[in-house]
Amino acid sequence: MLELEKVHARYGAITALRGISIQVSNGELVALLGVNGAGKSTTLATIAGVMHPWQGSILFEGEPIAGKSPEQVARLGISLVPEGRDIFPSLTVEENLRLGAYTRKEKIEYRRNLEEVFDLFPVLKERLQQPGGTLSGGEQQQLAIARALMSNPRLLMLDEPSLGLAPALVDQIFELIARLHQRAVTILLVEQNVERTLEIVDRAYLMNTGLIEIQGTPQELRAKADIEGIYMGMRRQPDS
């Protein structure tokens, strides 16, 4: 479904990605792991069209998408929930969700998606007329994911959805991701919480300084990581 081939990207003079190749198949849940500054968020931003690679190719369902604008990429069915959530604080929850469905013009589909989203996030139904900025951190994260789901994405990209949330909410978010995966949503997940992530994903890529270091199933990753004894990120985190 998604295929990155030797993608390079940089911010001005700083090289962020040094030729990474990633594949995500239909219905898969794949994670990008690695320490801060490894290039995980840059990878998502590059796929979403927010950044443009200066080398390499990105194929989505066989179509090259490198260099397309964010709105063009969104129309193809790729949805990004950025780090820091980026909900619209001055818009109500309902307006946030309505914009999430911008690429979907049908009213019936909108209603159905809205019901589905309320089913997943009952709290949003209660907060419908409240400005997004007045929600708690956990609720904002739920809104951000709900907004992305409103477009019926073919590929959902989540950038550190558990960041800055209380432990109970972190559990909820991981359960939710697992549940979305069961519903056959294709997901590319960026996470710092390595242990929790490896519990739910099909495959993972371990990134470091703009390169893919290791890839494979959780078992393979655990084995390789043990042998090579790397990464602070691979150690069990004290809060989990």
Binding site: A48, V50, S69, P70, E71, A74, R75, S79, L80, P82, D86, F88, P89, S90, L91, E95, N96, R98, L99, G100, Y102, T103, R147, S151
Partner: peptide
């Protein structure tokens, strides 16, 4: 709504598929 959203965060508005 898209106009107000763009004033909040233009990039995010585009990520949702609203053409700049």
């Amino acid at each position: 709504i898209a106009l107000r959203a763009a004033a909040d965060n233009f990039t995010m508005t585009r990520i949702l598929g609203v053409p700049a």
